[in-house]
Design a protein around this nucleic acid. Sequence first.
DNA 1: CGGCAAATTGACACATCTCAAAGCCTGTGG
DNA 2: CCACAGGCTTTGAGATGTGTCAATTTGCCG
Lengths: 242, 242
Amino acid sequence: MALGGYFTRFLQLRDELSEDDLARLAAMPTRLETFQPGEVIVSPGPHTRSCLVVSGLAGRVTMLAGKPAVQAITALHVPGDFVDLHAFVLKELDHAVVAFGRVEVEFVDHTELAQMTEHFPHLTRLFWMTTAIDAAVHRQWLFASSVLRSSAHLAHLICELYVRMSSVGAVRDYIMTVPLLQRELAEILGYSSIHINRAVRDLRDRKLVRWQGSEVEILSWDGLTRLARFDPTYLEIGYRPR
Amino acid sequence: MALGGYFTRFLQLRDELSEDDLARLAAMPTRLETFQPGEVIVSPGPHTRSCLVVSGLAGRVTMLAGKPAVQAITALHVPGDFVDLHAFVLKELDHAVVAFGRVEVEFVDHTELAQMTEHFPHLTRLFWMTTAIDAAVHRQWLFASSVLRSSAHLAHLICELYVRMSSVGAVRDYIMTVPLLQRELAEILGYSSIHINRAVRDLRDRKLVRWQGSEVEILSWDGLTRLARFDPTYLEIGYRPR
DNA sequence: CGGCAAATTGACACATCTCAAAGCCTGTGG
DNA sequence: CCACAGGCTTTGAGATGTGTCAATTTGCCG
């Protein structure tokens, strides 16, 4: 199927797609590629295509050369996410997209997207919406990093990933795969990896999660959301004419 | 003029507008309103119009009820910024928009924007771009809050505000008006207001800024950008066909 | 002049970072 | 099957960054 089923599902969770919309999505030529753990999917710079995640976990890495060189992970993307769709309107990426674990992505040419904006205003608004949801997630991360201490902050990330993955059906029960090293979690949340280790231990000690390698089981959804003060409203999972 | 000159300038700094585009912008009916310091411009919830800043400084405040109630400021907006344009595609705001100092804003009905998306694909892409730039700013704030300590973090905010304001001509020399209390700076950067006070003093002691009330003068642009490791690329100020 | 909110300062508590070392897991080669 | 190497995780201890509380000073406005 062109434009991976997960993405279509992502849209359909938020608005109705007409027959024409679905046909246009299905007709969109894409190119599937697979990336190994740690590989760079898209480098910073100008691009003429964007990609969406079909399976696995991808992230955006903002880097700053100089001394010391530093980097942070500013976004995570699960199946169905159109990772660098914003590059279609920005034309240039100021960050890299990298694979965490093994990742399959589909690439779509910007010429296709441009053609869509010329003739499919409703689809255009929905694509626009997906980048607006990305921004809402960014704001929530800012908020969390402002008001939560390390354990609660980590818990918040777990809650968000769980809701996002479960909304597209990428989890079973309360178990999900999070192929992130503690060093990478540190670059997401803005702590040292040693501190992340302590936060993970804290969540374990509180019996909120079981966490072994990249397998995370949520033992108490209530406890976790209470600690993280998590409210999924910002993910905009809800049916609404757009 | 409909759709404030600053916003047109914001777009023209980034792409060429055709006669048709300009005519459509000029024909867009807007309603100008003025808000006093601290007033809420837009409350959380569903809306049928969006607003753009004509003069003054506005911000987005994310709140969380409960005990303790907490809030953070997740975005700032200078003249020419289409503050809650994303509400056009999200339909509902998960945060408030408030006035810092006296603020003039123009409201535009979503029906107008919807009509634009039906017939003006190029303008649509440019409007989409402005929300993508918002997201890029969010990412930079995430990055800064990950890798910078308080003084450098504050310096980064000053640099960003200066570049954004000067790009639309809202500063003179190296002096700008930043009508933010230290408590509000704390809610932006995620520190306590006491710590902000110390960061301000630090920047003063280093002779990087003069800061009196809401008037900020940058004494050493080089020193400030070096401390903040500031690189304005993410603001996407550059001409590019979109 | 008085009153209030904001800015400033000091002292101490808590959160997080850095450095260093030890333990664990996994893949590889003998 | 074992030994080893390397990267990741885990732990400890001390340094630094930041938060909280309380008090003082400043600046604005009536």
